[in-house]
Design a protein around this nucleic acid. Structure first.
Lengths: 337, 337
DNA sequence: CGTGCGGATGTGAACGACCACATCCCGCAC
DNA sequence: GTGCGGGATGTGGTCGTTCACATCCGCACG
């Protein structure tokens, strides 16, 4: 039997295409980068050859020569939560539209070591830009201490003068939530805050405190939670025995779910005995029982803006993406006052 | 003023490091790839030089030469849902441990065009492996029609002979859920299925049908939903007017939430009048009111296995990752029979 | 005291693409 | 008919790394 053609393991080359099309590799390059200086007939021929060989430009070679990786990095914490996950998705699809690739790294611990390892991991990939949606203070501190960072866009919750930060007015959202409760006649409003070190958590807590003081309402010391519904549940159980408040403003929806669970279990009616407000508007919030009053955030728009800021190099218009209060059945006037 | 040193925009090189350390670039290469054939003293010297220059190996150049990108791709659909998001997270952290990078592409539409565009996007990045957690039939069809795919691991819900598929026995999970309801005395059990084309949805539906027929219980025609709690809510409202069943088995937790919302609104007691079972065990399921009986999936383990299969080239042991029934308060014996 | 051997290090040639420049060709004006 | 200009195409060098091979050195052995 005749010797078979040695199978080609190597992916086809610009030179392979060039040879097949009867032109030089440079002409192929021009076709790939669609240069205008090409006769139509030549372009057709090259395109046909590329098609025939299933030619794909080698990204590594291109990156090496141009020193552009066309990749952006996303630094996130615990992605499984609704907000970050949605934001990442939006970032990715916006990036795709710009012809960019996305690599993500998320941090499960918030120690400096883990954080800088994650960032290193992204930088190792030659990311051309960095989007940080890990809103913990320590992340920003670590970031600030690193040199040679690519252009970076961060999400912030308060004004701190950084023009490269996309600012979401968490405080305004929190104030709206508290104002809503106050206007319904609640005087004693409890706050379940997010963890120490989370910037959003602090901003929401600030909003809570400010709104109360503006209205001359009594301030109950906020309780630091960990975002989980488990925490909301156990905290709720303890606090509702005391009954020193008629409403809860929780720093996210999960904790609000936990609180409502506790209320139900103790035979308290929501909103009759206790009103509850969350933050985020996760998809099941509207179908919780009772449906949860919460503050909606437009994570989708957020992701899109991040990419736009990175690509255009523009600065953010502060407070652009406003959270919005969504009133549902979990809040009502307090039964007794 | 004297002319300043022209600032070096170029990142430091192997040659730069070599020069500083007084060795050849090849020696630097050996240090980077920690070759054993090096005197300790030399290695130290090179490491010091690398440190001093903040040297980072150029990934593009390395990829070009070795034709290994050290990147794997993940194809997912709508990431914002709990399961996929968690799986991706697990994949990423397992990949990190293997020194691999991860790039994701997710598809929002399920037409062939979008799917193959997403895959192309991954292949363009020279991914060395592909993990598919988009469990729609059409995705697999599109995949099968494409040539030149890198090694691929997929998630399947049923046995179909593909050794490179990680098999999660959705059917068993569904059967356990239905069995639980039946053993509590329910005779009329309704199924809210997932959308057409989703393999998991079909597997769960099969499980439902099989378990009922094994037990000689009447089969009510399953309703095709879209995974959203909105759908569960509207479907629940319609179906509960009819009251032709005492229990609902929903193909995911979200739809179950919607159904319970509808029940509450209609003044029906869960589980007194109606029992409800979900699927996934999302974090808030345990704190819904009443806490939701559901089928837990170990997405974390799933993600880790995917990576291991890809890296080791091993096949899956079928049915390894078993979903587990978690009984909570949303199910009880029917009040009337 | 030369030979050989093995461990440590250096050298040339890729990998695949892009850039700057050189070359070619053809039509048009002088 | 020669020169010239400009549009189309080809050639060398380079990006930073790795691979295969060459070289060097010192020491043990015959």
């Amino acid at each position: 039997m005749a010797a078979t053609e040695p199978q080609r393991v190597r992916a086809p080359n610009m030179r392979d295409v060039a040879q097949l099309a009867g032109v030089s590799y440079q002409t192929v390059s021009r076709v790939v980068n669609n240069s205008p200086a090409l006769r139509d007939e030549t372009r057709e021929r090259v395109l046909a050859a590329m098609e025939q060989l299933h030619y794909r430009p080698n990204r590594a070679a291109r990156a090496l020569k141009t020193s552009r990786s066309r990749m952006i990095g996303v630094l996130a914490s615990v992605r499984a939560t609704y907000g970050p996950a949605l934001t990442i998705q939006a970032i990715e699809s916006a990036a795709m539209a710009e012809g960019l690739y996305v690599s993500t790294a998320h941090i499960t611990e918030v120690d400096t070591e883990t954080i800088s390892a994650a960032i290193d991991r992204l930088i190792d990939q030659d990311v051309e830009g960095l989007i940080v949606i890990a809103p913990q203070q320590r992340v920003f501190d670590t970031l600030a201490a690193m040199s040679d960072l690519p252009p970076t866009v961060t999400l912030r919750s308060g004004l701190d003068g950084d023009p490269r930060a996309l600012w979401v007015d968490q405080m305004a959202g929190a104030r709206a939530a508290v104002a809503h409760l106050a206007e319904q006649g609640h005087e004693y409003i409890r706050h379940l805050a997010g963890p120490q070190d989370w910037i959003e958590a602090d901003a929401r807590m600030q909003g809570y405190l400010l709104e109360l003081s503006d209205r001359d309402l009594p301030t109950l010391p906020p309780i630091r939670g960990d975002w989980t519904s488990d925490f909301g549940y156990y905290a709720g159980r303890e606090l509702m025995v005391v009954r020193d408040c008629t409403a809860f403003f929780c720093s996210n929806d999960e904790m609000a779910f936990g609180v409502m669970h506790a209320a139900h279990e103790l035979g308290l009616d929501v909103p009759g005995d206790i009103s509850v407000v969350g933050f985020d508007d996760v998809p099941s919030a509207r179908h919780y029982w009772p449906p949860l009053t919460t503050v909606r955030q437009d994570f989708d728009e957020l992701g899109r803006r991040c990419v736009r800021m990175l690509v255009d190099g523009t600065d953010a218009s502060p407070g652009d993406v406003e959270p919005q209060l969504v009133v549902r059945a979990s809040t009502a006037a307090p039964r007794r006052r």
